[in-house]
Amino acid sequence: MKLQSAIQFASAAVALAALIVIGPSAIAADSIDPAADAKAFQKYFTDKFPRLELKDFVNGPYSMNEDMRRQWQEKEEFPPYEFSLEAGKEMFSTPFRNGKTYADCFPNGGIGIRQDYPYFDGKEGKVVTLELALNRCREANGEAPISYVKDDMAALTAYMAFTSRGKPFDIKIPNDPRALEAFEDGKRYFYTRRGQLNFSCASCHVQNPGERIRAEILAPALGILNAMPIYRSEWGGMGTISRRFVTCNIQTRGVPLEPQSDEYRNLEYYLSYVSNGLPISGPGARP
């Protein structure tokens, strides 16, 4: 192994050891400190990539080196997600059969609010993601829910992200033991190995960002949701956060969860919170 990557590996191991949770039952709510976690998490990445500014991390694999960054700039000249953005805008402004629109379901008419999702809903006692809130809006207005992993959901979230570009992630964890437990549960999911290939999310996105897995460059976990949804050339289309989680689980020969299951919602809560302060950049384009 090259010396540099050996060092990176060793420091990843140390950071991971510090972050990994010993066991589910050992966690008492008062030992959960999201703010300290987020600080350590961000420091791990800025130490690992000292030449990147915090906001640079939101470009995923494209942030990882000069060559990739150039490819990204070229791509942004003719953004491949434009069709989806258009479709999303259209959907967003088309009234439901009852005459209401998506705008009626969200604060500020749904404009410029992507950075506030997911949030912890005190009444329900659970995390609510943007994708989930969109389907709840549909159902509350008598419309059938749409697939979490298909184009319509990607289009809607693309439009909502676009109206929020540049706004820093502002995820809140209220002082409620259930919210803290949701955060901790998402963190546990992120660092737990699973699947026949025995990977955790962190194996790839914390231990090996910037490395090639086959021909793909692994995105850093910091800022990993800021660009969602994404157009992937490899998919020949758009993908939501749900689609990406399911895909990454399948790649490790694990059993993917249902989109918007409690675990995925908590995972999204954790990953978004530790990226607080980094700007929304979605929709994104990826190789």
């Binding site: 090639r212 897995i213 021909a215």
Partner: peptide, 18 residues
């Protein structure tokens, strides 16, 4: 193995392992 290792004779290797 090429997912992570450069190996003589193999295409498109990854860089995760030595």
């Amino acid at each position: 193995c090429l997912t992570c290792h450069v190996i003589k004779g193999g295409d498109l290797p990854g860089s995760i392992g030595p």
